[in-house]
Simulated assay, not measured.
Amino acid sequence: MPRPAVAPPARKVPLRKLLRAASVACGVQFGLVWLCGPLSGLLVQPLVGHLSDRLAPASPLGRRRPFIAAGAASIAAAVLTVGFSADLGRLFGDDITPGSTRLGAILVYLIGFWLLDVGNNATQGPCRAFLADLTGR
């Protein structure tokens, strides 16, 4: 009867060395993620502000509320996307074995995070303008 294959013992890596290696990847990820907010704000807020200013006030919801509702829906979708990024990555073919990269989950997470920034920026401008509309200035 053949003996089952036994994996070789894992080599121990000192925690200090592991943290140094991970800190490089951490810095790159933070740089990429922090870039999403300013870029989406630069593009989304002026566009949504312009569109909400030009919307006819005869709409039953007014000029600002449709954009606030769309931004809130985008935020909700983004939170769900980020929260289920591992599961969605698995749907896109990620390998779930230990040590695998899970590129699909990473991409889904980044898209969800970017969508969260876009939703925040799409909501923030019309909310400020709505407050100004309420004060009559």
Results as ranks from 00 to 15, higher is better:
98 P>S: 06
26 C>D: 11
61 L>N: 04
61 L>V: 04
56 A>Q: 13
118 V>D: 11
23 S>D: 07
100 S>N: 02
59 S>D: 15
75 I>C: 10
70 A>Y: 06
34 W>Q: 14
78 A>K: 12
3 R>L: 07
96 I>Y: 00
87 D>A: 15
55 L>C: 04
125 G>R: 03
23 S>V: 07
32 L>W: 08
110 L>N: 14
113 F>E: 13
71 G>S: 09
5 A>Y: 06
20 R>I: 01
90 R>D: 07
49 G>A: 12
117 D>R: 00
123 T>G: 04
94 D>K: 01
85 S>A: 15
130 F>V: 00
109 Y>Q: 12
57 P>Y: 12
27 G>D: 10
34 W>F: 15
26 C>A: 12
129 A>Q: 05
44 V>L: 08
88 L>R: 15
82 V>F: 06
17 K>W: 01
49 G>R: 10
71 G>V: 07
91 L>Y: 07
97 T>G: 12
132 A>M: 08
96 I>P: 09
53 D>F: 00
76 A>W: 11
134 L>G: 05
103 L>Q: 02
129 A>Y: 04
121 N>S: 11
102 R>S: 08
69 A>Q: 08
88 L>A: 13
42 L>E: 06
111 I>L: 15
135 T>S: 09
127 C>D: 04
74 S>H: 00
88 L>F: 15
39 L>M: 14
18 L>I: 01
90 R>L: 14
22 A>N: 07
120 N>P: 00
44 V>C: 09
104 G>K: 07
70 A>T: 11
21 A>H: 02
56 A>P: 13
1 M>H: 05
16 R>A: 05
126 P>H: 08
99 G>K: 09
73 A>M: 14
70 A>L: 15
36 C>E: 10
110 L>H: 14
27 G>S: 12
112 G>I: 11
58 A>L: 03
54 R>T: 13
95 D>V: 06
18 L>R: 01
132 A>H: 07
10 A>S: 09
83 G>R: 03
40 S>R: 09
67 F>R: 13
